[in-house]
Design a protein around this nucleic acid. Sequence first.
RNA 1: GUGGCUAUUGUAUAAUGGUUAUUACUUCGGCUUGUGGAGCCGAUAAUACGGGUUCAAUUCCCGUUAGCCACCCCA
Length: 476
Amino acid sequence: MPAKKKTKVVSVQKKVVKTKTKSMSKKSATDAKNTESGDAKSQRGARAINLLRGMKDITPKDEIYWLNIYQKAVELANAYGFGFMETPVLEEAVLFTRSIGKDTDVVEKEMYVFEDRDGTKVALRPEWTAGAARAYVTHGMQTWPQPVKVWNYGPVFRHDRPQAGRYRQFHQFGCETIGHRHPCLDAELILVGYNFLKDLGISANVQINSIGNAEDRQNYTIELVGYLRSKRSYLCEQCKKRINKNPLRVLDCKEEHCVEVISESPQIIDWLSEDSKNYFMKVLECLDELGIPYILKSTLVRGLDYYSDTVFEYYEDAVEERSQNALGGGGRYDFLIEQLGGVPTPSAGFAMGLERIISILRSKEGNKNILEKEWSRIFFAQLGEQANYRTLKLIEDLRLEGIVVRHNLAKSSLKGQMELADKFGATHTLILGQKEVHDGTVIIRDMDSGNQEIVDQNKLVLEVKKLMKNIIKIRK
RNA sequence: GUGGCUAUUGUAUAAUGGUUAUUACUUCGGCUUGUGGAGCCGAUAAUACGGGUUCAAUUCCCGUUAGCCACCCCA
């Protein structure tokens, strides 16, 4: 028994008096709770266990979003010839440190890393691409017809501070095109992501840039650092530090003076090799051809080290100040696979952040038509013990014929069941009572008119099928 | 990781340094025990945690935790 503070005793006693009338049933629960531990405060016995920070349950209330998004992902991936692939949540930590980059924020600050029971350093995947690249090597996919196109869908983990549209476990849908370097492939990926958003009713734009190859970037960085040093006094404190640590990041700074400095800074495009420059022009041509609106953004540099040449991000149209969060992003990673021990294999990919997309969907009422869930509009109500058991069987018979009915077998009052049927928006309710069990019949009630019809149980499937046809007709 | 704001039942809310903490929705039960949509009645359910000030704290103060927002970064 935890020692209650003395000062509290008074109020505790007061409370007992207060709740006298309703405390009888609570008493046993109170006793039970005290056996657990001092912090067990809940009235229901055990201490309630909370969600870990940054984690989120997906409940049936969110189903409409998740299932629709998943369906769109499947449809699109199929339509563009991507095959489903799922790599493990848990990988050897070096996979990510080597691919994403040791000094990136994602790896350095946000990755879940821990020792497995055998002492191996493992990590929860912070994104999909590295795993896909690893799988390409693991399974010798260079012997498959190239390019190998895969898509993936599922949770990824980043130990960031939770915020709007940002969780520690979140979901990504992504596509990877591994094995070729061709502007059309870049454009196709951008298109798939673009259409994904469009199909979900989100009008988005693409911000795009090219960061060339490693050598280009090195040359550019030298130039940029030189420039930034010359303007050092105008920069914010943080950017002053960044000059040495991660100069490309300065380009992203939103501080007023920094923006000014950046606006006149050398642009990476001018430092691209001929090859990269031409390649980028062709990607843009493809996008023009496809009619995808894009914004050239010379300051776009992505935070993952493996990118080269084309990089892009998706943003919702017409969103000004509020959370300039990217909905998704991606790019080319021509050197990643050899870094992971494979043969040189040019590749590209993108990933979409599903939670962010859902938060937009949530804020839009106009999306109801895209996001409708088809529920059965037929309810099965039963009354009496015999009918109760019989109903379970009848529901099963119906299901075998492809007819789904909603029901609540735990409820005994017909009235309560009718209420439920109403809440579900049932067009018809099938009613089975004592009498009907005896007669081998079922009542079919039209919920709009209130008309009832008695049919033979043998003919139930047939009758219900007829009903469903009519419902569909009426809807059309 | 840094800063700002917040914390009352399942949800959304009201109020107060002092008898029983408000209201709505949800859930459950009832209002002719075999019939829904309205109405009415009732039940369940909360002051995040720890400390301090006080005769008395849900209210004021501090700490912790969590949430939101911004930075950072990214999805």
